[in-house]
Design a protein around this nucleic acid. Structure first.
Lengths: 226, 226
DNA sequence: ACAATAGTGTCTTTAAGACATTATCTC
DNA sequence: GAGATAATGTCTTAAAGACACTATTGT
């Protein structure tokens, strides 16, 4: 951007979204069957091109892709990284801005033919560099779950502390100390008890909580992890 | 990428680099005076368009920008984030893949008219959204310095532990405990003493160290910070 | 009363920080 | 040996984890 005569080459820019959810205590990714070439009929990450007329930025493009192609709204969305190069798309040099999205399982769209929800431990072959994008998303979600409130976006509106701890454990793949976990949640101060609400079984019911309004969009961070 | 007929719109893709270095115990950014419109004559981040014929990916584009426009090679480079939208560039909807680069001060290019090295605490007005990009780079460098070997890329080939600690302190903007710092460096095990080499003044000389080969490209991470 | 899970109190272990001491150089 | 900074030993403090105990429900 500093030389007078610089060729501006046409580069294809797309947005790809790794949409993750927690089903039966396992992280799952949402895949769509590609309708068009290249790789028509193949399971792939939801994605699409930028619509300059409607999208305020690539995050808006990603939200639009989730809405129009997956059929969901309100997922937590964060930019992951940008993947690029001449070989990732057979059509030529391309750039994909990848986003990571989290959604509670109960907010998934109704079942249909061109959509599947697969455990990340049993993914099919994916086209383009979608496998690398998905792996990057998993690494990001797992590492960020070590010190932030990220996993709460896999929960519904309200949840109990034992439920939340289980979600953390499922994402991280390791058990957590109950006392330490609750101490941290208390220190970080991003949860509030839902007044009277409880929940039962054949045992003591657990207090219901929700995220404080200030932390609905922003993540809560813990200085020393957990 | 799942519908048969999707318009592929022309989007301008550029690469911008936040090149940081440490001068007189302060973080400085390298800026270039723009030769061409828009914002001709204005100080801005080094940047440029992608050259599909030569660049293997946007990281290679960033490295090429550093080499051809700034005149340096071998800087530590990592992708920061991608900035996008209709308003950031007056020419229209654009995408900028931003990179963060670190360089020891002694590797800076010779002085010249269209290049300046300014303290990040006293930046001029910057065009486009370069200020936001720079702020994001600073935030990233500072937060990553809390738990990784990142700041070592502001040092030369060899350095003493007191020098390294000072670099960390300058980046983080706060003093560190000497014993803890050295304990961590020892635990993380990414440094090796340069055999006989020492360094003097009118006092006890300090042992020289360098980064172990395995960590020259990869960062060393500490599980619990510092 | 019993089984089952929620929630808390408290001790142990481990990591981080403060402080003091020893080491090694120049003058 | 005085002064300066490097390097390390050791005590204190704070955070994390283990474990046990109390609490509250349904049956």
């Amino acid at each position: 951007m500093n030389q007078t005569t610089e060729r501006r080459e046409a580069v294809q820019v797309s947005v790809d979204v790794v949409l993750l959810t927690l089903v039966e205590q396992q992280l799952h990714a949402v895949l769509l069957r590609r309708a068009a070439a290249p790789f028509a009929g193949v399971w792939a990450l939801p994605g699409g091109f930028i619509h300059t007329a409607e999208d305020a930025d690539t995050k808006a493009s990603a939200a639009r892709v989730l809405q129009t192609k997956v059929g969901i709204e309100g997922a937590y969305l964060e930019q992951l990284a940008t993947f690029s190069g001449p070989a990732r798309d057979p059509r030529g040099w391309s750039v994909a801005v990848a986003y990571c999205a989290l959604l509670p399982a109960q907010s998934l769209p109704p079942q249909r033919d061109d959509l599947c929800v697969v455990p990340v431990s049993a993914l099919p072959q994916l086209p383009f560099d979608h496998r690398a994008i998905l792996d990057a998303a998993l690494a990001r979600v797992r590492s960020k779950s070590l010190y932030s409130s990220l996993p709460v976006h896999l929960c519904g509106e309200t949840f109990t502390l034992p439920q939340l701890q289980l979600v953390y454990e499922n994402v991280l793949g390791e058990p957590l100390n109950k006392v330490s976990f609750r101490r941290k949640m208390d220190e970080m101060d991003w949860l509030e008890a839902v007044p009277g609400a409880l929940q039962g079984g054949a045992h003591r019911p657990a207090q219901l909580y929700r995220v404080k309004p200030a932390f609905r969009q922003e993540l809560a961070l813990s200085p020393r992890g957990l």
